[in-house]
Every structure is written in C-alpha cells, then in structure tokens.
C-alpha cells in the first residue's frame, strides 16, 4: 500500500528491484541475439567446410585449378566456375562503375531539386527487382537483342584490336559470359550509385565552392575535388557492388549459358559458381554434392574477403569524417 509519506521512496525502490532483474534479462537477451549473428557466420563456415571436406580430401589442391567437371566419372575441378564468377563480375564492374559514377554525378550536381528524389528512388528500385526477373528478361529479351545488334558490332570493332581481340569472339546465341556481366552490371549499379551519391553529398560545400571560384568547370570539381575527397568511400562502394555481383545466382543462371567448358571468348557460354549450384544441386549426391558445397564455400570466402575490404574502406572514411568534424 502506497501512502503519501513513503510513496515515492517505495516506488523508487520497487522500480529499482524490478529494474535490476529486468535489465539483466533484457541485456542478456539482446546479447544472446547479437551473438547469434556471429554464430550464423561461423555456422556457415564450419558446416560448409565439413560437408566439402570429402572433396578437398579427394582432389586436394588440384580442385582449385583443374578445369574438368565430369559428373559421370566423378572428376571435379573448380577452375571453370571460379574463372566464370570472376570474369562475369569483372565485366559487371567495368560497365557498372562508370555508369554508377555518372548517375551519382547527375543526382548530386546536375539534377534540379525536384528531380533528385524521384530519379534516386527509380534507380534504387532497380535493386529491388528480384534476381529471377532479371533472369527472365535477360534470357527472353536482352540476350536476343544483344546477340543481334551489339555483339556483331563489338566483334567487328573490338574483335579486330590486337591483344584483346580474341576476347570478343563467340557464337551469336546471346547467352554468354558477357551477357551475364551486362545483366549483373544493371543489378549492381543501384548499390554502387547509392554509395557514391551518399559520399558526394557529404563533400563540404566550401571545398567545391573554392574550386568553382578558381574557375574550375563542373567536371574538374568532380574529378579533382570530389573524387579525391571521397576516394575511400567510392572504392568501398565498388567493392560492395563486386561482392553482390560475385554471388548473384538466378539472373546469371538464366543468361550465362551454363557450359562448363573453358573458352577465351567472352561471347561463349560459361558458368559461375552460383549458376552451377543452382543447376546441379538438386540432382547431386555423394562426391558431386560435396564438390558443389566446396564451390559454395569458395564463393562465400571470396565474397567475405571482398565485402570485408569494402567495409574497411567505408569504415576508414567514417573515421576520417568524424575526425574532421571535431
């Protein structure tokens, strides 16, 4: 019973008692779930390693550099999917970075205010479209168009350039390593553009205005002031896009052609780690299954490294900015 005299003290005490226990429980629960995030990472690593072990034990280090992938004779080498993964992502970066850069410049420096938000949202919606939709569109619309128009054009021009010529050869069927790279580029543009945009927006106005005052053109401000200032963040954003491209599955499975043969031409069908898994996993067993899980582990480790580099660059930038604020 709370009376007027001892009320507040009693209430405070009660609050304190229930508070101590409640706080402990609440904090403990929160800690438990935070630890669970770490557990998921270690769980993935350990379980995949355990399941992939038969493959590593059987093929040893050769698993990484053998190009055979023979399901019937149970001979597995990861070279073709690993190379395919890296090359498609590289194509995606080469195409996606300049485009993202242009979009970020347009939104931060060129667009009138009323346009910034809608254009920004529309570009970000590209990231929301499910991967499988890119796959269907890529296979039934983009690939045929590309094979009929862009590919002959590129083979006729770039294909004759010494050194890089052989890369731009291949049958005009549309599904290829290069097509997969282009579709991946469209998918990662929103991620890279949005990081670049956020970075460009925090460049101090004084810096930009001083450069303008010295007679710089807009492009010179971008190239010589904004870009050096945001270098770390821009690299972080590119790495983030690369990480996304490496692990993208469904879109690539539709347009890459799913051929486990090694070709130099970018217009030949190929395969990536993720597309191989999507195609073969449900029919696999034994050593085949183990090899696919080994592929998954390799993919996870590659993306982990790339994303860690991305995070490192972005964190560094955050620290620099915090330092300059105080």
């Amino acid at each position: 019973m709370i009376t007027l005299e001892n009320g507040p003290a009693k209430l405070a005490k009660r609050a304190q008692n229930s508070g101590v226990l409640g706080d402990k429980v609440f904090r403990g629960t929160a800690f438990f779930f935070a630890a669970m995030v770490l557990a998921v990472l270690f769980g993935i690593m350990l379980l995949l390693l355990k399941e992939a072990w038969p493959t590593f034990a059987h093929f040893g280090f050769g698993f990484f550099y053998h190009s055979e992938w023979d399901v019937v004779n149970e001979k597995f080498g990861a070279l073709v999917p690993i190379v395919g993964t890296l090359v498609t992502s590289l194509v995606a970066i080469v195409i996606g970075v300049p485009v993202s850069f242009g979009i970020a410049i347009f939104i931060t420096l060129m667009a009138p205010n009323w346009m910034k938000r809608p254009v920004g949202i529309a570009i970000e919606l590209l990231a929301a479209v499910p991967s499988i939709i890119y796959g269907m569109w890529g296979l039934f619309y983009f690939a045929p168009w590309f094979a009929n128009t862009m590919q002959p054009l590129m083979t006729d021009t770039l294909g004759n350039v010494p050194l890089i010529g052989p890369f731009f050869q291949g049958p005009p069927i549309g599904v290829s390593i290069f097509t997969a790279g282009v579709v991946l580029a469209i998918m990662i543009i929103p991620f890279i553009a949005s990081v670049m945009r956020d970075m460009f927006e925090v460049v101090p106005t004084e810096l930009k205005e001083s450069a303008y005052a010295m007679g710089s053109t807009t492009w010179e401000v971008v190239w010589k002031v904004i870009l050096p200032y945001t270098k770390a963040g821009v690299i972080g954003g590119i790495m983030l896009g690369l990480g996304r491209a490496l692990g993208e599955t469904m879109a690539v499975a539709f347009v890459v052609g799913n051929s486990l043969e090694l070709n130099t031409g970018l217009f030949y069908p190929g395969a990536t780690i993720a597309s191989t898994m999507a195609n073969e996993f449900n029919e696999a067993s034994g050593l085949h299954m183990s090899s696919l899980i080994a592929l998954a582990l390799i993919l996870f480790i590659i993306t982990f490294i790339v994303l860690s580099i991305a995070k490192w660059f972005l964190l560094r930038l955050e620290k620099v900015q915090e330092g300059s604020k105080t």
């Binding site: 935070a34 630890a35 995030v37 770490l38 998921v40 990472l41 769980g43 993935i44 379980l47 995949l48 355990k50 399941e51 983030l240 990480g243 996304r244 490496l246 692990g247 993208e248 599955t249 993720a274 898994m277 999507a278 996993f281 696919l292 899980i293 998954a296 993919l299 996870f300 993306t303 982990f304 994303l307 860690s308 995070k311």
Partner: peptide, 23 residues
Amino acid sequence: VRFVNDVLLSAPSIVVGVFVYTL
C-alpha cells in the same frame, strides 16, 4: 557483430540456401 552483420547483408543468398540444406 556490426562487421559480420554488414558482410552477411550482402552475402550470396545461395550460400545461405546450401547452409540451411546441410543444417
């Protein structure tokens, strides 16, 4: 945790599928 969470945010979803398959 923050670092790992950001990595998991962009981790390939197919690897998560394989993980749950084996789990």
